[in-house]
């Protein structure tokens, strides 16, 4: 479904990603792990178009993604749940979800989508009228995920959903993600610092370090590989 080949990308002529290749098949759950500064967020932003690609190719669902302007990409079925949540603070929770349904697909299935989102994340129904900026970090993360789901995506990209959250809240969010995947059969691409959780449920994993893929393969094998620890802790 998503095929990234030899991607080089970065900010103002300084590349952050060098020669990154990644593949995500339909229905798969793929995790990208790696220490801070490895280029995980840059990779996501390049997929969404807010960081320009310098060379390489990105194909999604039969489209050459680099030829599609950034604001059209969500309409192809890509939902990006960005790092740091980035909810619309002055909009209510419900309005945030409505913004997610800005895509054609999201509008078509808005009613049943909203019902499903509320059933996965009931707290959103309770807070529907509250401005999203006044919620706690965990609740904002749920808004961001719900907003992504509201677009009725084919591919859900999650950038560090556990960042800055207390461990129990992060666990709760991971559990919900597993429910969502099981119920909706979504294709998920996850970027996470916390390797164990990220690899636990994934089919495949990639380890990114200083802008390069240094390890890839079956997630169970990766979670037993001490080189992953070294990539993080240096020794």
């Amino acid at each position: 479904m998503l095929n990234v080949e030899n991607l080089r990308a970065g900010y103002s002529s300084v590349p952050v990603l060098h020669d990154v290749s990644i593949e995500v098949g339909a229905g798969e759950f793929v995790s990208i792990v790696g220490p801070n500064g490895a280029g995980k967020t840059t990779l996501f932003k390049t997929l969404s178009g807010t960081v320009p690609a310098m060379s390489g190719s990105i194909r999604f669902d039969g489209h050459d993604l680099l030829a599609v302007p950034p604001h059209r990409r969500p309409h192809l079925g890509i939902a990006h749940v960005p790092e740091g949540r980035q909810v619309f603070p002055s909009l209510s929770v419900l309005e945030n979800l409505e913004m997610g349904a800005y895509t054609e697909a999201g509008r078509r299935s808005w009613k049943e989508n909203l019902k499903r989102i509320y059933s996965w994340l009931p707290v959103l129904a309770e807070r529907a009228a509250q401005p999203a900026g006044t919620l706690s970090g965990g609740e904002q993360q749920m808004v961001a995920i719900g907003r992504g789901l509201a677009s009725a995506p084919k591919l859900l990209m999650l950038d560090e959903p556990s960042m800055g959250l207390a461990p129990t809240v992060a666990d709760f969010i991971f559990d919900r993600l597993m429910d969502i995947r099981r119920d909706a059969g979504l294709t998920i691409l996850l970027v996470e610092q916390r390797v164990a959780e990220a690899l636990q449920f994934a089919d495949h994993g990639y380890v990114l370090e200083t802008g390069r893929v240094v390890l890839a393969g079956d997630s169970r094998k990766l979670s037993a590989d001490d080189r992953v620890r070294q990539a993080y802790l240096g020794m």
């Binding site: 969404s48 990409r73 909810v87």
Partner: peptide
């Protein structure tokens, strides 16, 4: 109107929603 408010709140996230900022 909602797309305008979203673009005002957070232009980057608006792009992820498919809004032409």
């Amino acid at each position: 109107g909602r797309s305008l408010r979203a673009a005002a709140d957070n232009p980057e996230a608006s792009t992820y929603m498919g809004i032409d900022v």
